[in-house]
């Protein structure tokens, strides 16, 4: 028997469309479920040796006050990093995303969670985010309508590979989307 998927269950914006979230979040003190599971950074670091034997993908959730450097040595075992935006105006996780991509060479999924609004999403993408957990109804509606409020002239080389950018003109720092 197949389960109907409702629109509300398609919470993840990725590759230009809403998709179902295949990940479960492991609560503080319960066993990690089978299948793709997300652990808080602290628990991941504490239990990482025991987690090696698992056969399902591992994700790690990182809060903006946590140092992304601590995750860096273990990134080869991580298929997803979620970075939280407690408020849309809190830009810390954007720095963490850039560090993951550009300094630590992480190629897995980086997901923005929390107060994710459409006006920040093109900027987040340039910092290395490639998926977005979107709950805000206005943003959901706008995305579904095909809106993407990017200004496609960039004055910064972010070095991220998620948003393919090509040099524009003679300025070494100017880029355009490819």
């Amino acid at each position: 028997m197949t389960t109907e998927t409702t629109d509300a269950e398609l919470t993840i914006w990725r590759d230009g469309r809403f998709q179902a979230d295949e990940w479960t979040r492991a609560a503080e003190d319960e066993a990690v479920a089978d299948g793709p599971a997300i652990l808080p950074l602290e628990r991941f670091l504490a239990e990482r040796d025991a987690l090696v034997s698992r056969n399902a993908p591992l994700g790690v959730s990182v809060e903006p006050n946590e140092a992304i450097e601590e995750l860096a040595p273990h990134l080869d075992r991580v298929a997803l990093v979620t970075l939280n935006f407690p408020k849309y105006s809190d830009g810390r996780s954007s720095s963490s995303a850039r560090l993951l991509r550009e300094r630590y060479g992480y190629v897995g999924e980086i997901r923005a969670v929390g107060d994710v609004l459409i006006d920040q999403m093109p900027l987040m993408r340039r910092c290395g985010f490639d998926s977005f957990a979107v709950t805000n109804p206005v943003t959901r509606k706008q995305l579904a309508e095909g809106q993407w409020p990017d200004v496609p002239f960039y004055y910064q080389p972010t070095g991220s590979t998620q948003q393919a950018e090509v040099p524009a003109g003679t300025r070494p720092w100017a880029r355009k989307p490819s």
Binding site: G91, L123, Y155, Q156, T158, W173
Partner: peptide
């Protein structure tokens, strides 16, 4: 000025 214009990382300081 150019480098800081709509900087994706530093627009929500």
């Amino acid at each position: 000025r150019q480098w800081s214009s709509i900087h994706p990382e530093f627009s929500f300081l």
